[in-house]
Write a protein that binds this DNA or RNA. Structure first.
Lengths: 157, 157
DNA sequence: TATTGTTATACTCTATAACTATA
DNA sequence: TATAGTTATAGAGTATAACAATA
C-alpha cells in the first residue's frame, strides 16, 4: 500500500520534469522557427517584432521606459532597437509635451503597414502549428498556463 | 449565421496566437529562473547542465558528434563546454578504441555526484512550479505538446 | 574524399554601469 | 537627489567556416 503510494508520487514528480522538458523543447523550437522565418521573410528579428507589437497595442505611443518594462529588457536594449526601427522609418520618437527628458515612441504609417503584414503572416504560422488542436484544448492549456504564471510570481527570485 | 461562423473562426485563430504568446512568455520566464538559480546555487549554466544530463543518460559515454546532435548545437560549442567541464574534473575524454579521430566523453565520479545533486534540486524547482497541476492535467498537456512536436517536424524550414 | 573534432570568428540577445540632461 | 534616456562594454549562447588528423 505505502509502496504504491510512494511509487505514484515519484511517478508524478517525474511527470512534472518530463512536462517541463517537453514544454521547453517545443517552445524553443517554435521560437527558432519564428526567428528564422522573420529573418528570411522580413529581414527582422523577434525583439524588433515585439517592440512593434507593443506600439501597435498602444497607438498613443509609449515612452522608452514603458517599452523597457513591457518588453522586459533593460533600457539600453530598447534604445538600440528603437534606433534601428527609427532609421528604417517604422517608428518615430516624439518629444514628450511636459517632460523634456522623455520621448513618446509611436508607429509611423509605414511602420503600421509593415507590422500588420508581418503580424498576419506570423499569426498564420502559429495557427498552422496548432492546427491539430481543438478550440477546447487550446483554451484549456491557456488556462493551465495561467496557474504556472501564478507560480512564477510567488517563486520569483 | 455565416457571421457567427466567421466570428468563431477568427476567435479560434486569435486563440492560437494567444496560446502561443502565453506559452512563450511562461517558458521563457521559467527558463530564466532556472538559469539564474543554476548560476546562483551551482555556478553553472543551462548548456553545461544539459550536457551532463545527456552523459548521465548514457553512462557508456557519447562522442562529441553525438553530444552535438543530442544537444542540437554545432560541434564547436560542444568542444567549448566539454573543455570547461573537463577542466573542472566533471567529465573525461577517453580515446575511442578503434577510431583515433574520436573521443568518448563520460562523466567522472565527481561529475556523477555533482550532477545528481544539481538534478535533484532542479527537479524540485520544476515540481514546485507545477504544484497547482493535477497528474491528469500534466499528462494531458504532455500529450498535446506531442502534436505540436509533430507539426514542427512537418513545418520544418 | 568524407568525417571527427578543434579553432577562430561573428552575430544575437541581454545585462551592468557610467554618463547626460532634465526633473 | 532621482529619473529618462544613452552609451560603452561584457558575457551568454549560438552559428559558420577554415583547418588538422584520421578514416
Amino acid at each position: 500500500m505505502s509502496i504504491d503510494l510512494e511509487t505514484r508520487v515519484v511517478a508524478d514528480d517525474h511527470q512534472a520534469l518530463k512536462l517541463w522538458l517537453r514544454l521547453l523543447s517545443c517552445t524553443t523550437r517554435v521560437e527558432t522557427l519564428v526567428r528564422n522565418r522573420l529573418r528570411g521573410e522580413f529581414a527582422t528579428t523577434l525583439p524588433r517584432f515585439d517592440l512593434l507589437a507593443q506600439l501597435e497595442r498602444y497607438p498613443q505611443g509609449l515612452s522608452m521606459r514603458e517599452l523597457s518594462q513591457r518588453l522586459m529588457v533593460t533600457g539600453g536594449n530598447v534604445t538600440g532597437i528603437t534606433d534601428q526601427l527609427e532609421g528604417e522609418g517604422l517608428v518615430a520618437r516624439e518629444p514628450h509635451p511636459s517632460d523634456r527628458r522623455s520621448y513618446t515612441v509611436k508607429l509611423t504609417a509605414a511602420g503600421k503597414r509593415a507590422f500588420r503584414k508581418m503580424a498576419q503572416t506570423h499569426e498564420q504560422w502559429v495557427i498552422e502549428l496548432f492546427e491539430g488542436w481543438t478550440a477546447a484544448e487550446k483554451a484549456q492549456v491557456y488556462g493551465l498556463l495561467a496557474k504556472l504564471k501564478q507560480s512564477l510570481e510567488t517563486h520569483h527570485e
